[in-house]
Amino acid sequence: MGHYHRRDKEKVCIRTRKVYDWVTRQIDVPLRSFSGDDLEMIFPTTNCQRTGTMCEFLTAQAMDPQALTIRCFLTDAAGNPIDPVVDQDALICQEITQPNGRQPVNVTLPSGEIVTLQKVKALVKGHVVVQIVSPTGTVICQSSPIPFATAQTFILCAPEGTQLNCHISFFECDTSLVCTDNFAQLDVSITLCLEVQMEADVKIEVEARFCQPREELAEAVLCPTNKFPPQCPDVFPAM
Rank of each mutant, 00 (worst) to 15 (best):
G2C: 09
H3T: 15
H3L: 15
H5T: 11
D8F: 07
K11F: 09
V12M: 07
V12C: 07
R25V: 06
I27D: 00
D28I: 01
V29T: 01
P30I: 01
R32K: 11
S33P: 00
S35D: 14
L39E: 01
L39C: 01
M41T: 06
P44F: 08
P44Y: 05
P44I: 07
T45W: 03
T46R: 07
C48T: 10
C48S: 04
T51K: 11
G52Q: 05
T59F: 06
A60S: 12
Q61L: 10
D64H: 04
D64K: 01
Q66R: 06
Q66C: 07
A67V: 15
I70L: 13
I70E: 01
F73V: 02
A77T: 08
N80W: 07
N80K: 12
I82P: 03
D83E: 09
V85E: 11
V85M: 12
V86Q: 13
D89K: 08
I92P: 02
C93L: 07
Q94D: 09
E95N: 13
G101A: 14
G101D: 13
R102D: 15
Q103P: 03
Q103Y: 06
V105R: 07
V105E: 09
L109P: 01
P110K: 05
S111L: 11
S111P: 02
G112W: 10
E113P: 06
V115T: 13
L117P: 02
K121Y: 11
L123M: 12
L123K: 06
H127I: 05
H127Q: 10
V128A: 03
V128C: 07
V129K: 02
I132R: 03
T136Y: 04
T138E: 14
I140A: 05
I140L: 08
S144H: 02
P145Q: 00
T150R: 01
A151F: 00
Q152T: 00
I155E: 11
L156W: 05
A158P: 04
E160C: 12
E160A: 14
G161T: 08
G161Q: 13
T162R: 04
Q163T: 11
L164E: 04
I168R: 02
E172N: 11
C173I: 04
T175D: 08
T175L: 07
S176C: 09
C179Y: 00
T180S: 15
F183S: 06
F183I: 03
A184E: 12
Q185P: 03
Q185R: 09
T191G: 10
T191F: 10
C193G: 06
L194N: 02
L194I: 06
V196E: 05
A200W: 09
D201A: 09
K203L: 10
E205F: 10
R209E: 11
F210T: 00
C211D: 11
Q212R: 15
R214D: 09
E215N: 14
E215G: 14
E215C: 14
E216C: 08
L217S: 13
L217K: 07
A218R: 10
A218D: 06
E219Q: 08
L222I: 15
C223P: 07
C223H: 08
T225K: 11
T225L: 13
N226S: 10
N226A: 08
K227T: 14
C232G: 04
C232E: 10
F236N: 13
